[in-house]
């Protein structure tokens, strides 16, 4: 089962994932997916506040920060192709 990396976030993650997949297939893919009608954002906030604590506890937030820096450099060349 695709779980959250933190057990305590599993329930919140499940609710958000289900919402996101419905929104994506029923709205976004049909061209109606703007941020305004994304009903999942409240569920995401709950899930995210749980996850952020877990990321910090495990020191993953620092790994992510480094990876994002590297990504910024490669992004400009990679995404430049697709405009």
């Amino acid at each position: 089962m695709s779980q959250s990396l933190a057990k305590e976030c599993n329930e919140a993650k499940e609710r958000y994932d289900t919402c996101f997949l419905k929104w994506y297939s029923e709205k976004y893919l049909r061209g109606n997916g703007t941020e305004q009608n994304n009903e999942c954002s409240i569920l995401f906030k709950e899930y995210s506040s749980c996850l952020q604590v877990a990321l910090k506890e495990r020191g993953i937030d620092k790994l992510l920060e480094e990876a994002r820096e590297e990504l910024k450099d490669s992004d400009s060349t990679y995404m430049g192709k697709k405009k």
Partner: peptide, 27 residues
């Protein structure tokens, strides 16, 4: 693509995936 690790029952090739989390998602 978003569903590929959703469940090892649906995708037995994802047995090695222990967890999946969304960090951010926005339009």
């Amino acid at each position: 693509f978003f569903l590929r690790y959703c469940s090892p029952q649906l995708n037995p090739f994802s047995q090695h995936v222990m967890s999946t989390d969304t960090l951010s998602s926005h339009v």
